Simulated scan of single mutants.
Amino acid sequence: MKTSEPNTLAIRASDAPLRTKPSNYPEPFFSRMAKREKRVLGDLFGLKNFGVNLTRLHPGGESALLHRHSKQDEFVYILEGMPTLVTDVGEKQLEPGMCAGFPAGDVAHQLVNRTETDVVYLEIGDRTPGDEGSYPQDDLQAVMGPNGWVFTHKDGQPY
């Protein structure tokens, strides 16, 4: 059993450090994530089975490319702002207090900030091994390898 000091068991989420690398995507997709900031909360506590991020999208920002996972589920909870949930079956305006869930293999999704104010939300996803990401609007595919995501073109050629 792991024991921790009481003052390391809880933090103010907004005090967590920003993720140093804004995206794992290769260019030309990497630069599309420039208006996104993530605070990787789950890793701070050594969580292994799922990840939790506090994410801020500045005006014009995107949460990710439009994507779906083959094995991993995702969930988002809106804390501030009015993002647009974009899916391959339509769009929906979200507001604080709303949430959305994306079962593995289901609808492709992303959040986009089309407003003039920041959007802040929690994103939670599991870490099922062997996951793959598909991107219906972009020439990109991803496979979760032992050292993280490996991205290729849809024809398998590396970036």
Rank of each mutant, 00 (worst) to 15 (best):
E91G: 05
G101Q: 13
N53T: 08
H58P: 04
A34E: 14
D73Q: 12
E37I: 00
F50A: 13
N49A: 15
D106R: 13
A100Q: 09
F29C: 06
L79I: 10
L47K: 05
R56G: 01
H58Y: 07
F102P: 01
D43R: 07
T117F: 07
L140N: 05
G81E: 08
M33R: 12
P146T: 11
K35S: 15
A108Y: 06
L79K: 01
T84C: 06
Q93D: 10
L111S: 06
P103N: 15
F102S: 08
L122N: 02
L44C: 12
L41K: 10
L85C: 02
A108G: 11
G101N: 13
R36P: 03
N147D: 15
M98T: 03
S70Y: 01
S31R: 13
E132G: 01
F30N: 14
C99E: 10
E37Y: 01
V120E: 04
F102V: 02
E37F: 02
P103R: 15
L47M: 15
G101V: 11
S70V: 03
R56T: 15
T128L: 10
S134N: 05
L47S: 14
D73A: 14
Y121L: 10
R56P: 01
V52N: 09
Q72T: 02
T128P: 00
M82N: 12
D131N: 09
Q93I: 06
D126E: 11
D126V: 04
N113D: 04
Q72H: 00
L79Y: 00
F45I: 11
I124C: 13
P96D: 04
L140C: 07
F75N: 04
L47V: 13
D88Y: 02
Q110R: 15
L47N: 09
K48A: 14
A34L: 09
L122C: 03
A64P: 00
A142G: 15
A108V: 02
G90S: 03
H109S: 08
K35A: 15
M144H: 03
G145Q: 06
V89T: 10
D139Q: 08
L122H: 02
R114A: 12
C99Y: 15
R36A: 10
M144A: 07
L41Q: 11
V119K: 10
A104Q: 14
R36H: 04
F50K: 08
F30T: 01
N49P: 00
G125P: 00
E80Q: 12
G81T: 11
I124H: 05
G130L: 07
P103M: 15
Y121K: 08
D43A: 13
H58K: 11
R32A: 12
G97W: 03
N147G: 09
K38S: 15
G125R: 11
P129C: 06
L94E: 05
P83H: 00
V107Y: 08
V112T: 09
F29T: 05
C99W: 14
V120Y: 02
F75Y: 14
P59A: 00
G61I: 10
K38Q: 12
G125T: 05
G125D: 11
L65R: 00
L57R: 08
A100K: 06
S70G: 01
T117Q: 13
L66Y: 02
I78Y: 02
P59M: 00
V76Q: 04
L85F: 03
L94I: 03
V76T: 08
L47D: 04
N49W: 08
V107M: 13
P96F: 06
L66A: 01
D43K: 08
A108R: 10
T55V: 14
